[in-house]
Each structure stands twice: as structure tokens, then as C-alpha cells.
Design a protein around this nucleic acid. Sequence first.
DNA 1: CTGAGGCTTCCCCTATAGGGGAAGGTCAAG
DNA 2: CTTGACCTTCCCCTATAGGGGAAGCCTCAG
Lengths: 129, 129
Amino acid sequence: MKIGELAEATGTTTKALRFYERAGLLKAPERTPAGYRDYSADTVARLGFIRRSQSAGLTLAQIREILDIRDAGHAPCHHVQQLLQERLAGIDRQIADLIELRATVAALHDHAATVEPATCAPATVCRYL
Amino acid sequence: MKIGELAEATGTTTKALRFYERAGLLKAPERTPAGYRDYSADTVARLGFIRRSQSAGLTLAQIREILDIRDAGHAPCHHVQQLLQERLAGIDRQIADLIELRATVAALHDHAATVEPATCAPATVCRYL
DNA sequence: CTGAGGCTTCCCCTATAGGGGAAGGTCAAG
DNA sequence: CTTGACCTTCCCCTATAGGGGAAGCCTCAG
């Protein structure tokens, strides 16, 4: 299957597929005599895996790690579980940070609402930021 | 005051200061006969404003908007309040997205924990991602 | 006078995940 | 035979907020 067909079958683009190859997520496929990439059918499943991993918020680098383990003939279960755990911790950290930031911004916003326009002189340092 | 002194006084770097100038956050300062930047003392306050705005999660582009309004001789209060409100909405969106993602990843992780290692054969499509 | 810093401009580099487009080869249909 | 659609490689570009370093002046202390 040619690159355009694979792109259509997996809902991605030829650009992305070549990029995945360069990034080591897809092995270099066979070539037709004309030099066209000729993908095997199971590449569709591999791309499905990549896509699902991306929706879980894993980076291409992390997905590549998993695929490398699998391609080396090992079961990546343990590694995947560890990555997911790290990802969970990262998400929790991000949420906590955002909640804190939200409180800060909300306080600034509420304070801004109480500022008398008259006291908010132009060309001075802003009173509430 | 020279650029290195200003950087030290505001806890930033000369690189950042030149970058702010190019980005329109700082006006081009006077120059000494030798061509050195010669900042006025109130630039310290301006950088304090920039720094506080950054902690509130505003981008340099947004901070620049505020400063432009102020430099034009208008009070930026209204604009600032609007920006803060948009920022709040953005934060809320990010938090909601992260909570959803967290649930997805947690489900994957829990599922992974229940997978029998034996059924997780290498070189097959991963069973839980 | 000379060396150490500090200053100037200029250009490239970082990470992320590709997108845009040029120049040229290939293939199937009309 | 040619045209259009597809393929190839190659290089630059996106946004963010600067960082690294080179080559060349300036200035101050010893």
C-alpha cells in the first residue's frame, strides 16, 4: 500500500507518515522499483496504536520507546504501565498548578473589578497587576 | 543604567531584555556615545509589571497589548480585566481537559494492572493501549 | 599598556509535531 | 503523447521565550 493510501486509511497525512519514519516510530518500508514506499498491511494497526497513545497524552518519544521494546521482541507491558503512571503524576501536577494559577488570576480579576476608573491613571504602573 | 545592571536589578538576563525590546515590550532606550543601552530608572517598574503579568500566565503578546494601551496614554484597566477573564476561561478549559484525560489514562493504567503477563505477547498490538 | 569584563550585532538552536512548497520522477487514463 | 495525480527528497516555517556563542568595540583597573 502506498503512502497516500495508508494516510487515508489511518486518517493522517503523508507528511506525518514520513515524519514518523524519520522519528523512528515507523520502520522504513519496502520500496517499489520506482522508489515509492510500499507499506505492509499491519502498519495500519501500528498507526492505530500510535494514535491511541497520543490521545492518552504520550509524546512521540514515549510512544517510540514502547514500540522499540515491542520491536525488540519483549512485551512492553511493564514499561507502558510505568509510563502511564508517570503520565498520571504529570497530569496531577499540571492540574494542581492550574488550580493555583486560577486562584491567583481570579483574585486579580476580582480586584480589578473594584478599582475606581478614576484612580486607574494612564501611564502609571497598573494598580492591579 | 546599563543593560547588565538592569538585568541584575530585575532578576532577568541581558538576552531577555534585548528580546523584550525586539518584541516591543520595552521601548528602545537611549544610547551612550559608545552605543550602549542606557535605561531610565522606571524601566525597573515596567519589568516588574511584565514579570507579574507573566506569573499570571499572560503571554508576552498579551502583556505587550496592555503596555501598548498604557503607552498610548489610555488606562488599560478594561482591557486587562477582559484579558484576565479570558485567561480564567482558558484555565478552566485546560483543567477540564486534564481531568478528562486523567480519567482516560487512569482507566488504561488500571486495566494494564489486570493484564496477565502471559497474554501480553511480544510483537503483537498492545492489549491495553 | 594591557587584560578582564561588559557591551554591540548577528546568526543559529532548543522542543513539539508536523505543514508548505519547490524541483523533479512515475504511473494510469484519455 | 500528454496531462493530472501521486510520489520522491530537500529545505524552510510555525509558536514560545529566550539561550549559546562568534566577532568586534568600549572601559576601567592595575
